[in-house]
Design a protein around this nucleic acid. Sequence first.
DNA 1: GTCTATATAGCGATAGAC
DNA 2: GTCTATCGCTATATAGAC
Lengths: 201, 201
Amino acid sequence: MSKPSFRDQVLKAREDAIVDAVNRLLADKGFDAMTVDAVAAEVGIAKASLYKHFESKEALAAAAMVRVLARAQAFCDTEAAALPKPLDRLKALARWTMQVQLAGEMPSLPAQNSTLRTALVADRVYMDRLVALSECLGEWIEAAQADGSLSPRLPAEVVLYTLFARACDPVLGVLKAGASYTDAEIIEWLLSSCFDGLAAR
Amino acid sequence: MSKPSFRDQVLKAREDAIVDAVNRLLADKGFDAMTVDAVAAEVGIAKASLYKHFESKEALAAAAMVRVLARAQAFCDTEAAALPKPLDRLKALARWTMQVQLAGEMPSLPAQNSTLRTALVADRVYMDRLVALSECLGEWIEAAQADGSLSPRLPAEVVLYTLFARACDPVLGVLKAGASYTDAEIIEWLLSSCFDGLAAR
DNA sequence: GTCTATATAGCGATAGAC
DNA sequence: GTCTATCGCTATATAGAC
């Protein structure tokens, strides 16, 4: 590991600022409604300069996704891993994703866009991080099913996809927009509906 | 009620065909990726002719939403209403929405598009149907909480929004794309995760 | 690498003939 | 009401000077 030059550090700082802006815009408007012009304006540089750092709009979104996946992985490796019960680790991660969403920092990629999905699956860094996170969660899911705390009827795959989907659950945004509940209430309700279900226990 | 003229019937049939196409395209690609050209091509008429029937792309989407809301209302008024327990009525509706989604007939409107949402809330027919359906479901939700079958901790509003959100749950599409499960399995798992939760009972 | 200015293309919407 | 042809705008992406 050679120490990065000052010049490289400046470059990295700028790219971080770009990804910050992309992340905010993705969380706020979604991929389709986000324009590269808006990204450039938010960063405060010319659009052409953006394309010196990232080769396409899809690459911008991918970078934002990579960073949020990295944040999730870091949470799993530290705070969540410190919890003894695997179900509690899964709940902690779900709570964390909801907090990120409430903070307006969860980039939401409409699940259907085709050029975007093509670019993402072709992105090695993104796919590697996604697989790594999925494997980590997969182990917890199986452990939680083994110790009887997670429903054994659901395939691990279904649980995994459900957790990913709840990280972008539009219900959270609607409740927040209603403005009559606190963030803490919203999170507890959505966690409850996710893990305990709508039916009474 | 005067009998509609033959001419009006032909007109209505054409508009139904248009809404059919819009519905398919919305379910397949979503609002942003759907182009008016594609709608015209699928119906087999010129784009300009479309605009004689609907004044904008947003109006096309609204018409598709109105129709699916009407279908949902019809299901509630007949099959679901025939069930004695309110919780079973809610489950029946959730199952129905998942079947519609699996059939590729559930128009999905990315929750964030601004021009679209503006047009929808300004659409009296759409809003009236949405309110009517919500009131119907709201009564069932309160009844289910009153008889102890639905979790009393969740506000009725949260349950209602969750049911709407699950009608477009992306998890279903992902599982179907995986192609290793039957439609019936997918529906049962998602119903279970929605009403019983991920945690073991 | 950053800028201004522009190329290119797709799409929503419309004009005008029939 | 249907068509062909086109307008007008927006957005991604690039050229070329500095």
